[in-house]
């Protein structure tokens, strides 16, 4: 019994850390999750959330929804949806995500715009409305507008670099102890070994946390079937996942595994027009 209580306390402690990290930003979508969230250079609908510039290089419009359950606790779940519409020289993207449960929740909704400066380079920008809600508004709710800027460069035919800066203005969410939404810089690269296999390396620095180095890879085993894997250094975790693409329908399943806290699965269902 005591063991169980201790475990619960322990998990809650880590959850708080996680919740604090959540206040900022973490990539979404099972494809990203399966690759250890080394996804700043990924070109897919979740670019709406991770790198608005990348959406410019998509072929077709796409929508997607995701459900993530860190450490299999429904109180920490994130529900999200994203849409991306690429045009000839630009892309419009939007996404919304909600983290938490009735006692504490964060909602982030925003629209992004990506602009293609050349066939190898795109820049992106996004504006979010970010809201924190305590106990169904009992303790109140706070909101602010945050910005994001991003870049994707196809430096050569098989080498892509990307960067994403979240909340460059270091906005406050509350005056109390001048609580700020963190600034997060992610810089990463993709190397395409072939049409079917690529690897991503990314460094993420949250202003308040240690740098996280992330490595991820995706292998297109068969035309319609993908497997993915990834590693993070801070906190140390492994990731794995798979995805299928049938007609326009995309299904991705992934989980990260933390050696103390366990599995954090995520599932995505999307449609490509």
């Amino acid at each position: 019994m005591i063991f169980k209580q201790l475990t619960t306390a322990f998990i809650l402690f880590f959850c708080l850390i996680q919740a604090k990290a959540q206040l900022g930003y973490s990539p979404l979508g099972a494809r990203s999750s399966g690759m250890g969230n080394a996804s700043v250079t990924n070109i897919d609908v979740w670019a709406a959330h991770q790198n608005q510039a990348a959406a410019v290089f998509m072929d077709r419009a796409e929508v997607s929804t995701a459900y993530q359950s860190p450490f299999l606790m429904k109180e920490l779940a994130t529900v999200s949806a994203a849409a991306a519409v690429p045009f000839e020289k630009s892309a419009l993207t939007t996404s919304i995500s909600q983290f938490g449960y009735s006692q504490y929740s964060e909602t982030r909704a925003g629209v992004g715009y990506g602009l293609k400066l050349s066939k190898r380079l795109a820049l992106g920008v996004r504006f979010n409305y970010f809201n924190v809600n305590f106990q169904d508004n009992f303790y109140g709710s706070k909101g602010t507008v945050t910005a994001e800027i991003s870049m994707l460069a196809k430096v050569t035919d098989n080498f892509i670099m990307g960067a994403h800066l979240y909340n460059p203005t270091y906005n406050k969410i509350a005056e109390f102890e001048s609580d700020r939404i963190p600034v997060i810089l992610r810089v990463g690269g993709t190397y395409l070994f072939s049409d079917r296999f690529f690897a991503n390396l990314e460094v993420e620095k949250n202003i308040d946390h240690n740098a996280n180095i992330k490595l991820g890879a995706e292998y297109n085993v068969q035309e319609k079937f993908f497997i993915r894997g990834g590693i993070n250094t801070a906190p140390f975790s492994n990731s794995f996942g798979f995805g299928v693409l049938i007609k326009g329908l995309r299904i991705d399943i992934a989980s990260q595994y933390h050696y103390i806290l366990g599995y954090s699965p995520q599932a995505t269902l999307g449609y490509r027009f």
């Binding site: 400066l117 380079l121 460069a153 430096v155 460094v203």
Partner: peptide, 16 residues
């Protein structure tokens, strides 16, 4: 450190 130029007019770079 990496320095790269996706366009002639633009130079990007990173250092860790």
């Amino acid at each position: 450190e990496i320095k790269y130029s996706p366009l002639r007019e633009l130079q990007l770079g990173n250092r860790i």
